[in-house]
Simulated assay, not measured.
Amino acid sequence: MILYYGSPIAIFILLLNFKEVQSIKGILMMIGLSLVPYIILWIELPLPTIRRIVSCRKIVDRMLVIIGALITLILRISYKDVIEPINKMLINSDPRIIDIWAKYAIIFPVIYYITGWRFSVAVERGESKAKTIYEKIMRQEHTVYSDLQDCILYGGEKYQSEIFCCKKYFDIIRNEEKSTLLQSER
């Protein structure tokens, strides 16, 4: 979760020193650099983790939009009184920081929605695959443990509860995991 929400913030901090942030090239660079960590996360994270991110995303995304707008407003109102003297004393940073932040505060939600949509598609594909596996399991006379395991992995809690409610499937899982545990203890 920290990587999901922290990546664009880290990119923003890195881009403060980039001279062309105001240009279209700079904005496209912001978007591109912010999307790269998400592509890596999408490829590397297991489906259960992606499912958790998607379930939390709706609330956090709305909060980020509000927080971004509030920070932009506060920066614009208090720049002359508070931020400019601090910048001159401590950092002597670029006065364009407000404009950079204002653009990035708009880009933040766009990036989150694009990646959130992509993560949601991954979850939907997993659920579709789980449905296919579950239908296969229901037709089988002799259910295989690996099919039950795959169904739970791709389908999450919904299919886990479906499988665990059926005594036949629960016994298959329990026996397989018990035998695996006994073999690992030897």
Rank of each mutant, 00 (worst) to 15 (best):
M1T: 02
I11Y: 08
F12P: 01
L15D: 08
N17L: 14
F18V: 00
V21I: 06
G26W: 02
G26N: 01
L28F: 00
M30R: 03
I31T: 01
L33P: 02
V36A: 03
Y38L: 03
L41S: 00
I43K: 14
E44C: 14
I50S: 02
R52S: 07
I53G: 04
V54G: 04
V54D: 06
S55V: 06
K58V: 06
K58P: 03
K58A: 09
V60M: 12
D61Q: 13
M63N: 10
M63L: 14
V65R: 06
V65I: 05
I67F: 12
G68T: 07
G68M: 11
A69F: 07
L70Q: 08
I71S: 12
T72C: 04
I74C: 14
I74R: 15
I77L: 12
Y79Q: 01
K80L: 09
D81C: 08
I83D: 12
E84Q: 15
E84H: 13
K88V: 03
M89Q: 15
M89W: 15
N92T: 11
N92I: 10
N92S: 15
S93K: 12
S93V: 07
S93T: 10
D94V: 06
D99I: 02
I100S: 11
W101R: 11
A102T: 07
A102H: 08
K103P: 13
Y104R: 11
F108P: 00
V110F: 09
V110P: 04
I114K: 00
T115R: 02
F119M: 01
F119W: 00
S120Y: 13
V121F: 01
A122Y: 03
A122E: 09
V123T: 02
E124I: 05
G126H: 04
E127K: 15
E127D: 10
E127M: 13
S128G: 09
S128N: 11
A130K: 04
I133P: 05
I133G: 05
E135N: 08
E135D: 11
E135V: 01
K136M: 14
K136V: 07
R139P: 05
R139E: 10
Q140P: 07
S146A: 09
D147E: 11
D147V: 02
Q149R: 14
Q149K: 12
Q149D: 12
L153Y: 14
Y154K: 10
G155L: 08
G155S: 09
G156I: 03
E157I: 11
Q160W: 05
I163Y: 08
C165N: 15
C166V: 08
K168I: 01
K168P: 00
Y169C: 09
D171C: 10
D171G: 06
I172G: 06
N175D: 12
N175Y: 08
E176H: 15
E177A: 10
L181E: 13
L182R: 12
Q183N: 12
E185G: 04
R186W: 05
